[in-house]
């Protein structure tokens, strides 16, 4: 602990060395947030895809019911 307390009073790191640490910290934070946003975008795309499938299914069923009612209507008339 004492050698760490001694380090606090030591002179600043040169820009070349400190710059690498600063760049690493900012890049890591940016990459983590970007990865999170990418995962969320992927999930949203899956939800949209599933919603599209549901909508297509609902349309197909709706068309099927229309044709059934048309057929039964014809039979009743006949």
């Amino acid at each position: 602990m004492s050698h760490l307390l001694g380090l606090i009073g030591s002179p600043a790191l040169p820009l070349g060395t400190a710059g690498r640490y600063v760049a690493a910290a900012y890049i890591v934070a940016f990459v983590i947030v970007a990865a999170y946003v990418a995962i969320m975008a992927l999930r949203l795309r899956r939800i949209e895809h599933a919603l599209g499938e549901l909508a297509a299914d609902a349309h197909a069923r709706h068309d099927g019911e229309d044709s059934i009612s048309a057929l039964t209507g014809e039979r009743l008339e006949g």
Binding site: S10, A12, L13, A18, G19, Y21, V22, A25, Y26
Partner: peptide, 19 residues
């Protein structure tokens, strides 16, 4: 401004502490 003791390294402060 650059901090007297840590210099450019102290720029991490503006990321680390708010986070």
């Amino acid at each position: 401004p650059l901090e007297a003791q840590e210099g450019f390294l102290q720029k991490i402060f503006y990321l680390h502490v708010p986070l």
